[in-house]
Simulated assay, not measured.
Amino acid sequence: MAYDEILANRVREKFVELTNITEKEMMGGLTFMYNDKMCVGIIKDELMCRIDPTLHDMAIEKQGCRTMDFTKRPMKGYVMIEEIGMKSEKDFDYWINLALDYNKKAKSSKRPKKKPSH
């Protein structure tokens, strides 16, 4: 199992009204890009959220949340939420909305296309 399909469907339901959402399989899971920016993802059975780095320390105090350290390097602004932290619809919405709020001001992770050299 690369990622939890039920969790992926929960995310899809939240994004159904949004335009400019794309899904990409990466990091052994599924990533939801919004406006060409990484927004949320699913790795195994956990939700990954890209949030405002200024809210990071507060976020990791919440039950079931920890700093993402996918490459063994903690990444401020990226959190992982295990099932206990998103069991209720209210908690799940909290994380999704935190990621969507930050997406408005997040920088695109899209690399600019290289200009051909002559």
Rank of each mutant, 00 (worst) to 15 (best):
A2T: 14
A2S: 15
Y3G: 00
I6L: 01
L7P: 03
L7T: 08
A8P: 06
V11F: 00
R12E: 04
R12V: 05
F15T: 07
L18E: 10
L18C: 10
T19P: 01
T22H: 04
T22Y: 04
K24A: 05
G28I: 11
G28R: 06
G28L: 06
G29L: 05
F32P: 12
F32W: 04
M33L: 09
Y34Q: 09
Y34C: 14
K37L: 05
V40N: 06
G41E: 10
I42M: 12
I42P: 08
E46F: 07
L47Y: 10
L47M: 13
M48T: 07
M48G: 14
R50G: 05
T54P: 03
L55G: 03
H56D: 05
H56Q: 06
I60G: 07
Q63D: 12
T67R: 01
M68F: 09
M68Q: 14
P74C: 10
K76V: 14
Y78P: 00
M80Y: 03
M80W: 05
I81Q: 04
E82R: 14
E83S: 14
I84W: 03
M86K: 04
M86I: 05
S88V: 01
D91R: 09
F92M: 06
D93A: 13
Y94M: 15
I96D: 08
N97T: 07
A106T: 02
A106W: 00
A106M: 01
K110C: 00
R111M: 02
P112N: 11
S117R: 13
H118K: 10
